[in-house]
């Protein structure tokens, strides 16, 4: 188990280094600096700006400096949950933003990332709740109308992208029916401060979280269904039935653990999907999260902000992949032994 874990961890670290290196040099290989597009910048100002952001250093030095600033120097997660300051929590410094001259990348992340986490976690919860329910019901009631309904719903969810479902949902639910606002986002702090009501908070979240959650409920339902069916066909389930276990007990006690393994394996890709899904959702619903910021910064060639966001996303995705692997190995001895 420990060997398995360390080898996966090493692999992730190599992948991480690849991400940072490729992103860094890809951005530097782009012709023209971040300030060449600006109209009003004179040659002199540009030189000063380059000087200030150390863009005149040799490339390898910029790279090494960047890596140095990135290396975690301490570990105080409490600081992180309390304001999302990466510098205070881990000593990680992403440097100044090139576009927002007065702000650092750390500040921008601290400002925008909580919104994306909130959106992502709520959506993931909805996806799991809806997907598992649909999948387990479909497997338990195989080849009945309940199964067909659940399978059709998940097929729609798999084939229709969020940027199609999202605008359609806004059109029908927000504009025609007028039940919820079409855009905007209410933060928890605003509710605590009393400027917004809890109802507004829920209403502002309903559409974006359901649209994003639905997109991932669909594959989860499909994986859960096929995983459950695989297990239900095995001999030990027949034994369980033969000894008189109720159908409920067969499902919950004997099938769930093995049947949901494929869903656990999907946790990694799902995280990646929810992060990239947030680019679209935050654009549709005008939510001030990090996903939209990433797309804008990619437009603006805000080197450090792009790099910082990419690294943050990569850490998250690889972290969840690793977590999924470990949980899977823990749930299924076969995988553990094979490695």
């Amino acid at each position: 188990m420990i060997r398995f874990f360390t080898s996966r961890l090493l692999q992730s670290l190599v992948a991480m280094l690849v991400v940072i290196t490729v992103t860094f040099f890809l951005l530097r290989a782009v012709p023209g600096g971040p300030f060449t597009q600006e109209r009003a910048v004179t040659a002199e100002t540009e030189r000063a700006l380059n000087e200030h952001y150390k863009l005149n250093d040799p490339l390898w030095k910029q790279y090494v400096d960047y890596l140095k600033n990135l290396t975690p120097k301490k570990f105080q997660p409490s600081e992180f949950t309390n304001g999302f300051d990466l510098k205070k929590a881990f000593g990680v410094d992403f440097g100044p933003s090139f576009r927002y001259s007065s702000r650092t990348v750390n500040e921008i992340i601290a400002d925008k990332f909580p919104v994306s986490i909130d959106l992502g976690l709520t959506s993931l919860a909805i996806a799991l709740l809806l997907g598992l329910t649909l999948g387990v019901i479909a497997a338990a009631k195989r080849n009945t109308w309940a199964d067909y309904t659940a399978t059709t719903i998940s097929m729609i969810g798999i084939s229709t992208p969020t940027f199609v479902i999202g605008p359609l949902a806004v059109l029908v639910v927000a504009i025609y029916l007028g039940w919820v606002p079409a855009s905007g986002w209410v933060r928890w702090e605003e509710v605590q401060a009393g400027t917004q009501s809890l109802g507004d908070l829920i209403r502002s979240r309903l559409l974006p979280c359901c649209v994003l959650g639905f997109a991932f409920a669909a594959p989860i339902a499909r994986l859960a269904r096929s995983g459950m069916l695989d297990v239900l066909n095995q001999d030990f389930i027949r034994t369980a039935r033969a000894k008189g276990a109720s159908e409920w007990r067969v499902i919950v006690r004997h099938t769930l653990r093995g049947g949901l393994l494929p869903v656990v394996a999907y946790l990694g890709p799902a995280t990646a999907g929810i992060l990239t899904g947030s680019f679209v959702i935050e654009t549709i619903f005008q939510i001030p999260g990090l996903g939209r910021e990433f797309v804008t910064s990619a437009f603006n060639r805000d080197y450090t902000l792009v790099l910082g966001t990419v690294i943050l996303y990569a850490v998250l995705i690889m972290g969840f992949n690793l977590l999924a692997d470990v949980v899977q190995a823990w749930m299924n001895p076969k995988i553990r032994l094979e490695s």
């Binding site: 690849v18 992103t23 990646a272 992060l275 990239t276 797309v295 990619a298 990419v310 990569a314 995705i317």
Partner: peptide, 11 residues
């Protein structure tokens, strides 16, 4: 293991 879509955006 790399974040795919993000790389495509960068590319």
């Amino acid at each position: 293991a790399l974040p795919f879509t993000i790389f495509v955006i960068l590319l």
